[in-house]
Computed example of a mutant assay.
Amino acid sequence: MAQPTVVLATASYDHTIRFWEAENGRCFRTIQYPESQVNRLELTPDKRYIAAAGNPHIRLFDINSNSPQPVMSYDSHTNNVMAVGFQCDGKWMYSGSEDGTVKIWDLRAPGCQREYESRAAVNTVILHPNQTELISGDQNGNIRVWDLTANSCSCELVPEVDTAVRSLTVMWDGSLVVAANNRGTCYVWRLLRGTQTMTNFEPLHKLQAHDGYILKCALSPEMCEPNRYLATASSDNTVKIWNVDGFTLENTLVGHQRWVWDCLFSTDGLFVVTASSDTTARLWSLADGEEVKVYKGHQKAIVCCALNDGNGLSS
């Protein structure tokens, strides 16, 4: 059977990764992941592989294969891996863990190439679009910028002392960085004109987005332009969509029955995908905030998802 054109991947505390035909909701492949839960899923830039961040390892699976075995395993973390992502050409991978480290990996080799010490459990790591800076957020409330060229920490921000930074997101053009924390607050920084590095940011906005934890925040992709949105997923069972121009509330996505752990935009910027403790993932229309599709099949909380949608979904 031919591979579906739009694939949604979800991972759950039931120790499985499921692959769905996003447009009709059919689950067509399940990978057993017995060693641990999966904390994060991320596709390689060429969409050929998917990385599953577990405890304490990262496994890389071939998306187009039916093999249940990973093609590569990365094994030098010593605790939950909470963040994973890729350089834009797929030459290397980065990760962040509750062991307090941020690591860089050559995808073709099993060993870790570089390691940075955050001195607290790392919850989130993102790669700036300039491809030369990693930004990490940890359990103690620290945000650190790791300059990969200088191989050192170039900047530290502490928006709220001892308040865990749960999620970081950066605008596709590098102009904004948002940090979301355990108190439901988003902090926004703006890149100063004419600069290309995180050391030249200024505080732009503080948004009290939710009363509960924010578990994930995501900025809209380039195809959304000229509209720019921020999505925030929370322990209050909702996802909120904010217009970045003034940070006004555009929509509240209501339907999940329990915590919403993950949210992401489709490539075309027309849809949002969410993953929840209520054992479902959902597809929402960004235009009206209405639920389009529910993905059911997991037995326990779904905590992360990834979407391979090429040029976007059709409605």
Rank of each mutant, 00 (worst) to 15 (best):
E160V: 14
S97M: 04
L148G: 03
L157Y: 15
G85I: 10
N123C: 12
L107C: 13
N151I: 08
E115W: 01
D147C: 12
E160D: 14
P110T: 04
E117V: 10
N80E: 10
S67W: 03
C153P: 05
N79R: 12
F86V: 07
T78E: 14
G96M: 03
V125G: 09
N151T: 11
T101F: 14
K103C: 13
Q69W: 03
P129N: 08
M72K: 15
A164M: 15
S67D: 11
I143Y: 05
S167M: 10
I135V: 15
E115R: 14
H128A: 11
S152V: 09
E117Y: 13
A83S: 14
S76C: 07
E156C: 06
C155Y: 12
L148P: 08
E156Y: 01
P68H: 07
H77Y: 06
D62W: 04
W92G: 00
Y116S: 09
G96K: 03
T101W: 09
S152Q: 14
N64M: 02
R114S: 15
S118W: 01
R114K: 15
N66E: 05
V102R: 11
L134H: 09
A150Q: 14
H57M: 09
M72T: 03
Q131G: 04
A150I: 04
L148E: 06
R119L: 03
I63E: 00
A109W: 04
V165C: 13
T132I: 11
